[in-house]
């Protein structure tokens, strides 16, 4: 395992090094892309100067709202849908085809509904993520062993207490799979819609820089988005490893 991470690191550093060399030797022109070292320097510049702090804050806040509400609503909906058999039979086929729909295509409709504030962007991020959380919550609750449900009845727990103290804790490793997806989707949804129609945020700034051939801004911001997504994902994965480790599931 340790060895595999070393190889992974070598591959990544190697690829970045390759791009660096190609940029420096002119195989990739400056109009196309900056060398990675320059991108990092520009990124440091941007962060120190605080020029894009408002955009960064807006994107992160909106993504966070989309993510948290996708998780909260998704878990709650998962519990309720699991409890109502008819509802589940009605909705399950819809969940199965949900990700065949390009939610972003509905963006204009959402603007009509919610106006041009932050709401449509948050909505897109939420809609992308919530179903992943619901589906994985259902999957986790399905796996609760019957004997644990009997134990809940012996302890005379109410339905709510059973969900809180037994069903959901058991399902957490599965829910976390949904949480990881919701995290990625909330960023995709928010930044993606900033690209299409918005007047602020990292997505907007990237597309603005693109239209102005401003590579010194565009690439650092792209890299920042990349770092943010990876960093947040690593936090959730660390939590996941802890949970799985305790249960001997690794």
């Amino acid at each position: 395992m340790k060895y595999a991470s070393l190889v992974r690191l070598v591959i990544i550093v190697g690829l970045i090094g390759l791009i660096e060399v190609m940029c420096r030797t002119g195989v990739i022109t400056r109009f196309t892309m900056q060398p990675p070292t320059l991108i990092l320097r520009d990124l440091a510049d941007i962060l120190v100067s605080g020029r894009y702090n408002a955009a960064i804050a807006k994107t992160l806040t909106n993504s966070a709202i989309a993510f948290v509400s996708a998780v909260v609503v998704g878990v709650a909906a998962g519990v309720v849908i699991h409890g109502v058999k008819l509802l589940r039979e009605a909705l399950e086929p819809l969940f199965a085809t949900y990700y065949a729909i390009p939610v972003l295509a509905f963006y204009p409709l959402l603007i009509i509904l919610f106006g041009i504030g932050d709401a449509p962007q948050i909505m897109i991020g939420f809609m992308l993520g919530v179903v992943a959380v619901i589906v994985n919550t259902l999957n986790g609750i399905d796996r609760v062993p019957r004997v644990l449900m009997k134990t809940a009845r012996i302890a005379r727990l109410s339905r709510a207490a059973t969900a809180r103290r037994i069903t959901l804790p058991y399902a957490i490793p599965f829910v976390l799979t949904g949480v990881k997806l919701a995290l990625a989707y909330s960023l995709i949804g928010v930044i993606g819609s900033e690209f299409i129609m918005s007047t602020g945020g990292m997505g907007f700034e990237i597309s603005f820089a693109y239209n102005n051939f401003d590579n010194a801004t565009m690439y650092p911001l792209i890299v920042l988005v990349l770092f943010t997504a990876i960093g947040l994902n690593m936090i959730v994965r660390r939590w996941e490893r802890l949970v799985l480790g305790r249960r001997g599931m690794q």
């Binding site: 004997v147 012996i154 005379r156 804790p169 949970v243």
Partner: peptide
Amino acid sequence: EVPDGVGVVFQEDACFPWL
């Protein structure tokens, strides 16, 4: 309905793995 005052130890492993 599970009456009050009854305790059960099941045949299967009923430990809560997260506790």
